[in-house]
Design a protein around this nucleic acid. Sequence first.
DNA 1: AGGTGATGGTCAC
DNA 2: TGACCCTCACCTG
Length: 304
Amino acid sequence: MPEGHTLHRLAGSLNGAFAGTVPTLSSPQGRFADGAAYLSGRELHEAAAWGKHLFVEFAGEAHLHVHLGLIGAFDVTAYSARGGDDEGYAAGSPGGALPPPVGAVRLRIATGTHVADLRGATVCEVATTQEVDAVIARLGPDPLRADADPDRAWRRIVKSPRSIADLLMDQAVLAGVGNVYRSEILFRHRVDPWRPGRDIRPVTWRALWRDLLLLMPIGVQLGQIITMSDQVETVLAGDFDPAAVPTSPTGVSAWRPNPHGALERRYYVYKRQGEPCRVCGSRVRMAEVAGRNLYWCGRCQRRR
DNA sequence: AGGTGATGGTCAC
DNA sequence: TGACCCTCACCTG
């Protein structure tokens, strides 16, 4: 699942595979048949991510709007025998034949060398420029976009009685952070997840934002959420070669564990309820906040 | 073979 | 707050 890093990585993969080409779009599963036909045969200009939304612009101001939801996946694969290993994509089926769709493929984008299959998305629709702009206008700043303004999020946070754990998951406040980054970022700064936004100190918010600016690009680069300091250090030191990380068996399904070469999947608190805190040994807790399970250490993250 | 959960979000009440 | 949507890996038996 896709938090913001998945979508930004996906935009890059789609651009590498399709930008400037005129792909064929289809809906093997059938539920996006009309939209695929409408977009098919147009030049694909550019894919871009805003928070957890993906937009792909085609010629004629026609856009594809995708939201992967909780379980969606968009796999980008090089399949031609000749191009199988180029551009960092997983090698496709030998022989250069377009592989048949597997499972419920809502949308397939294909050229002679690359294919992208979308499954399980909650949103897959054709959109006008105005509709794209309307979606973007609803979103808070996205730490993965260079022009993001953290003050815009801060103005919402500082006047809110809602908990910081609730606010971090609100895409209108901050776009792209999901349930893993939420729990982990709060732990990294020892912030009490139940503290109301209006009681968060400016220095704390600046630290959280700065940390997202560090962590999320690593997530984009590796296709994996890295939050533990030793792993962050490993990546920053260059000891870890992202090129050694396969984008997946079939491309960019970033939330699926990388089968080989990935850093060990290890977090401070996420999904560790009942286990000892890695810092103080206290039992990691879990509670539902904003409809999702929040994980935190009740001892480390107190009164801050 | 069947049940469940998962890094998300929307809509009705 | 709860129902519901989407797909598939990973349990259970």
